[in-house]
Amino acid sequence: MKRTSKILPLLLLIVLLFSMVVALTIGVVRIPMDTIWQLAKAQFGHADTTGVPASYGITLFQLRLPRIVMSVIVGAALAACGCVFQSIFRNPICDPYVLGISSGSSLGGAISFILGWDVFYFGVTIPALITGLLTLFVILGISKMSRRRSIETLLLVGIAINFLISAVITLLVVMHQREMHKIYFWTMGSLASISWSEVLMMTVMTILCVIPFFFYSKDLNIMQMGEDVAKNLGVNTKRVAYVTLIFSSLLIATAVSCCGVIGFIGLIIPHVSRMLFGNNMRSMFTYSLILGAFFLLIADTLARTLAIPAELPVGSITALAGAPYFLFLLLRQKKV
């Protein structure tokens, strides 16, 4: 058993907070650390900000900070969902993105953009949730039909669903060229122009959904040994699977509605935390949340700084790292 300490997550959290501050300084304009400190003090009271350009405040608190907070929360959320999917499907190379839940959600999002519903609060999230859940039930249905829930079947179903949905989205985009740029950029995943209200929604949802994950972490842990074993040990496998998968889909739909499809985090991060800290679900969740936050923070910082003043879709950055890793896992497919 890989021993996990109680201090390590705390240490990692501190490093994460520090990295967030460092990320704040980086961007089109470099804002030095002491200026950030000054501006932060000014937010909460009186501080001398003479000599600091007025635009710095807006850049910092309205553009960079919500975006950085969002990247940390979305990264954590996606990684946690990956843990759930891997445990329920007993498959180390599956996550909501590979199985097509993310693109399922993006279909609902695209539809709401075309219909102009994106001006409402939850106007994108609810359609995204509906199509995401539909995709989930299709996948569950197919995986139940094939009695041997083999890794290959699930992955192939995921690929087919991804194909299907990207075809439908392409058709929708071509038919509604006015929203083309918006939808296209969004399907690639981007954290640009995130507002505080979206950050708030995502944060609330993440907390709401991670609670049942931790609540069922022990059951999920045993379910990794297989359904029969888990049932015999008193785990209500059906309930655990439905509750955690539905909450994951809710979380995915919220993340997708805020920042599009960002892939591979749910695949890589749980895998890395398995390797480093073992398969126990409680430590898996803890470390995946932290490492996922790290990963997306770095990926998004790269996305907004690599090609200044242009902005890269963060989904393509995570895919650049994730796709080769996925391939590596496929080739090496053996016990994890």
Partner: peptide, 26 residues
């Protein structure tokens, strides 16, 4: 028994105690 995810022997035998434990204790 097909093992997909690795656990130690101790952890697996401890899983047998699940019916007697509450959900927060391992």
């Amino acid at each position: 028994e097909d093992v997909v995810f690795d656990f130690s022997v101790f952890e697996v035998v401890m899983m047998g105690r699940n019916p007697y434990q509450n959900r927060w204790e391992f």
